[in-house]
Write a protein that binds this DNA or RNA. Structure first.
Lengths: 169, 169
DNA sequence: AAAGATTGAGTTATCAATCTTC
DNA sequence: GAAGATTGATAACTCAATCTTT
């Protein structure tokens, strides 16, 4: 990541001011909320991908590995992975291709339903996932500049947004 | 967006449980906070891009248009745009290429410094930005399932994260 | 016919290298 | 030489179309 220099003001607070000056004051906080999520996402992905680079995985592929690691048999049908991560089937195919090429998962035919393909976590894949998790826990998840209570508030607010968007019920 | 079906449980709450069961309880809330931001980002970008599709712009290009619309002269050097949006210089070049092709901005040489290129908002570009803003305001920013106070809390929590990450000072 | 997965095309983002201007 | 922008290569995602199995 080539990081541009920091600004001497908060660009989102500035945008809030401009929104109000444009007569959109009643939408200004919503706009800044959306923009804030966008920007923090960018920061989190940047940190995570930098930490995961040494393991040869992106955050997207790491999520697939963890899903398999927490599954009952260490394997899941590709469709299930897509539903859980809310990504397109083609994206799952791509991710599994790459993970398979790297020896972290294998493809197995589903004995129950021949249409399905199972992604199965290899021993190397499980090890990689665990080591990557340790680094993310130590360097990212436990280093956020928010208290446990604040983190809980953040998660709660975002859960409301997710639920309302139909993410789960 | 081909949307996979909703789940009958909250996948992030489920991940929190699994994190605790793995002995990473002290990082579990941080992990869910990061994951929540990732997911809500996905939802917001999906909504915004769907709403903006009729205007022929993505959210990324819309942000460029709004930056120019709020600038003093309706034009900014490409480097400034990248710094403000925190994206790579090549991404700015790409975005401006597309916006120029669509007649929404023009490239002008900077009279002060010949190395710089200025992106200048056209009349059509300004009109497009304003119309798109109206739709985003009405259909997204004012429709979030959070109260004004909750939105403020969310923005505040995320501002702390951004500041600590060196986004501004 | 419907479900599950894959393929190929199109878009966008990053990075390293290059070119121009200061 | 350094700053600003562009280029070409690469990677990842989505979509529409296709193929296989039920």
């Amino acid at each position: 990541m080539t990081t541009p220099p920091a600004l001497r003001f908060d660009p989102i607070a500035e945008a809030h001011r401009q929104w109000e000056a444009s007569g959109w004051g009643d939408c200004a906080t919503g706009m800044t909320a959306v923009t804030s999520v966008m920007r923090v996402h960018q920061l989190f992905v940047g940190s995570a991908d930098a930490l995961l680079a040494r393991f040869g995985v992106t955050f997207a592929r790491y999520e697939v590995l963890m899903l398999l690691a927490f599954s009952r048999r260490g394997s899941l049908p590709l469709g299930k992975i897509g539903a859980r991560l809310q990504v397109h089937a083609a994206s799952v195919t791509n991710a599994i291709n790459r993970l398979e090429r790297d020896g972290l998962v294998t493809r197995e035919p589903d004995p129950i339903d021949g249409r399905r393909t199972l992604a199965h976590l290899t021993t190397a894949g499980r090890q990689r996932a665990m080591r990557a998790s340790r680094v993310l826990n130590e360097q990212l998840f436990s280093q956020l500049p928010l208290s446990e209570r604040e983190l809980g508030e953040l998660v709660g607010l975002l859960r409301t947004v997710r639920r309302e968007a139909g993410d789960f019920r």
